[in-house]
Each structure stands twice: as structure tokens, then as C-alpha cells.
Design a binder for these strands. Structure first.
Length: 135
RNA sequence: GAAGCUGGCUAGACAGUCGCCGCCUAGCAAUAGGGGGAGGAAAGUCCGGGCUGCACAGAGCGAGAUGACGGCUAACGGCCGUACGUUGAAAUCUUUACUGGCGAAAGCCGUAAGGUAUAAGGCGCGGAAUAGGGCCACAGAGACGAGCGUAUUAAGUUACGGUGAAACGCGGUAACCUCCAUCUGCAGCAAGACCAAAUAGGCUGGCAUUGACGUGGCUCGCGUUGCCAGCGGGUAGGUUGCUUGAGCGUAUGAGUAAUCAUGCGCCUAGAUGAAUGACUGUCAGCUUUAGCAAUAAAGCCUACAGAACCCGGCUUAUCGGCCAGCUUCACUU
RNA sequence: CGGGGCAUAGCGCAGCCUGGUAGCGUACAUGCCUGGGGGGCAUGGGGUCGCAAGUUCGAAUCUUGCUGUCCCGA
């Protein structure tokens, strides 16, 4: 099958209910700059939500930059992520100088996320049949 | 040429790959093609308008804003011109000093410390102090009504009074109240309109105008509530308002200028948990190092900063580059 | 995106309207009361009045422009 890196509208979380249900699931991985919250979903793709508060950066330009960079990283790596609702929260301000560090941090976060979710999926496989694919 | 100052323009450029958001065309659709996609401040929200609702916003009081004169404008607290005050140079002029230099001397030049008058330009002005009221600490004999002390004189006649910003002045202060002139109804696109789950009982039309509530702070005025008749109403969410406009460019004419008139050409973002991005290459640009220089290497990929109904201003932030003009001085012809 | 408020001592606030002295509570330091702690009493130190211009003889106070912070509106 042909992988496209298009970011469709269904991969975006919009409603307040989606956000609060992910936060209530209470699963969280955090590093120096980023923190992610996640919840497995029933759709055939991961979904993304971004939280960049006014506290982390005062200027709208730098907040927009962080949002765009994180969305681009999600777009390029969306086929490596298992099917979860994912909220990325920025904990510390970063700019163009820190781009390589942000990229590495994002990749390690995704690796950790996949490990954890697959572990839980194996446990639930023993009880019922599993949804699986994802090459 | 040197110094000082003012105004305007620009905001790295060109390709390639992967993406995002509207529009147009084709298609049942998936999608494909074409074309567009942040700023001079988009910011602060300090003023003025358009637009929308409240009665096509109407009367009086109150409250607020502005304040030389004339003009421009849709309007303004903005802009332009004139007048006034204040400020304004390392230049020029001039004073003093020098165990400074040249010279027989007069003098000239240099250095340092001042002074006066200014240029272009910058900033300011808030109308009225005999219409009236208030205030003027400390110091000082006395602080806004005048009186007191000393000297003097026919005579409260005349002069002076260590302070203090200001003194027998019909002062100062209206960015204290006030008066005069002009202007302002209030709220804001989260305004307003339409489609419409869950839930809950209300909504529309006619009649009446005492009380209550609302409409802008109050009074009028107006609307709702009250009674009767008839059934639809509208929160989450969505659609619209939403981008063609006091629009931009250019030429000519009027005017000292701000600005205006006419002709021709152009369409230039519309997101809504919020698009306009990431990476690569070449050339410019900046910094550092090496080098007399040409240049080479490394780094940065730039300043301030991101539309949210739209315009006209003001204020604030800002790396560089380019252009035009004004004043003074020096030199050459 | 619109509409409002507040910055004064380490902390919480008055003073501003009506311009001339910056104060209250608490905290801090010292001393006393008590056998000690707690508590009380007395004395003292500590403030660029958020920043910058202007009006005025004189500004925490009046005017203007910035900075920070908080609240309200679907």
C-alpha cells in the first residue's frame, strides 16, 4: 500500500470532550520540552491535539512556530504511531536553534509510546482477538 | 568634501521536494488542473468614522472631550500653512589661559576652558484670572482683604522693608472648581440575522397604560410584563455577517502645502481548538578567524514581530540597505 | 478579539478626589514582664510610591505615553 503523508482533517482533535477524555485517561510521558497524554482510540489512524499555553511563550509568533513544527513532525511520523488520541503539551519554550533536539525528543517519545501500547495490546490479546496491522 | 537634520521606499532573492487554508474549472464521489495566501507596525486599544442592534436616536438635565489663527478631511485630540514661546552645532563669531609652534615685532596657528547670537530642525501652546469661588506649605513683620514697622510729608503723602517661586502688583494657579465657544445618545461582529439535538415551558398578534422591569446616569418618551385569541419557540452545534473599499497604481491639472478633480489600468488573505509551514541547493547579507590585499574557511539563514468586521490617524518595538531634500562651514571655478 | 480594574515597607492595605508631613496591621531586630515556652508592653530599622516625560515654586497625588498583573463577555 502507498503511504501518503497527507494530514487529513479526521486526524485533528477539535472538541473539548475529546481533550478532557484523554486527560481523564491519565496516561502521560514527559521529557524536557514536551509532554504527551494518550488514549487508545477505535479509529484507523492516530489523532493529534496540541496545547501551547500562553505561559510557555508570551509572543504569538513563537507559539505558532512551536505548533507548526510539532504538527509537521506528527505528519511525517504518523505511520509509525499506533492508533491513539495524542495530546502534545509544550512545557518549555523552544525556537529554531533547538530544532534537532526537539526532533530527537519527539522520536524517543513515540518509541516509548509504542512500547507501552503494544504491551497493553498483548495482554488484551489473550482475552479477545486483537486489531492489528501497521507496518 | 565635512558635520547636523528631515522625509520616503524596502523588509533577502531564485529554484526543487513534502504539506496546510480559501477560490475557479472538470467529476456522482475520491480526486485532478489552474490561480491566490500576513504587516509597516498586523501590536497598544489612545482618538475618529463606517457597519449592526437598541424607536430611521427624539426633547431636557447631568456627564465627558477639545481649545492661537486659517485651511484639508467622512470625521478627529489627526495632517498642512502662518504667528508666538522654548530648545537647538563638534561649524562660524568672540573672551581668557599656555615655560605650545612660527616670527625682529605686530600678529598668525594649535590646545584647553568658557560666552553671545543663531541655521536646518525638535518640542510646546491647552480661549478667559475686573463673572464668581477655592488654594499659595516652609521661610518671612506681612501671602492675597489689606494691614504693620522705619524714614518723610500740610495730608495714608512718598520711599524702603534680611525672606520667598511670588510682595501696599488691581500677582500666580483654570493639566483646581468654574465661565465662554464647538462637539458627543449607548453598546459593540462574542454586534446582529438564519437553520436547528438534548432539556424546559414558552412564543406571536390584538386591547388596556395604574404598578413593576428594561432601554444610556436621571426625567419625558418608547418596549415588555397584565387580559383575550392562535401555535410553535431556540441552548450545544452549524451557516451568515466576511471581505470591492472614504481601495490600489499611473498620467494630467488646481493649490505654498495637507489635499482635491478627471482619464486609464488592476482585484490584492479570509482562518474559526484558529491556514500562510518544514527541509535542500545557488547567489547576496552579517559575524568571527587567517591574510597588506584579492580572497578562503566556519557559523547565522536573520530586526521588531503573525491578520480575526473594515478603514483614517496617533503612540510604542525595530537589523540593515537605498533614494531625495534642507542648513552651516571649507575648497575649486 | 473586545470591555474594565489595580501597582505604595518582606506580605496585606490606607493616603490620591481637595498637590507641600508617606502612614496602619503583620513580619524583622533589641530590651522588659514569666522559672521556661506562648503571649503582652516599649523602642528601632526598612519604601527609586511600577517606569518615563509634562503642568506647577513644588507631584505618591494632576495630565500624557509605556510596563507588569488581575477580572468580565460566546
Amino acid at each position: 500500500m502507498v503511504q501518503t503523508y497527507r494530514l487529513v482533517k479526521q486526524a485533528k482533535m477539535i472538541k473539548t470532550d475529546d481533550f478532557s477524555s484523554v486527560f481523564n485517561f491519565r496516561k502521560r510521558i514527559s521529557l524536557q520540552y514536551l509532554a504527551i497524554h494518550y488514549q487508545p482510540n477505535t479509529q484507523q489512524r492516530p489523532r493529534l491535539g496540541l496545547v501551547v499555553g500562553k505561559k510557555t511563550a508570551k509572543l504569538a509568533v513563537s507559539r505558532n512556530y512551536m505548533r507548526r513544527v510539532l504538527r509537521e513532525l506528527f505528519r511525517l511520523g504518523q505511520h509509525e504511531i499506533c492508533h491513539v488520541d495524542l495530546i502534545i503539551r509544550v512545557q518549555k519554550k523552544f525556537s529554531k536553534v533547538d530544532f534537532i533536539q526537539i526532533k530527537q525528543e519527539f522520536n524517543t517519545l513515540i518509541q516509548k509510546l509504542n512500547q507501552r501500547v503494544n504491551l497493553n495490546a498483548q495482554i488484551s490479546n489473550n482475552i479477545n482477538t486483537a486489531p492489528k496491522d501497521n507496518e
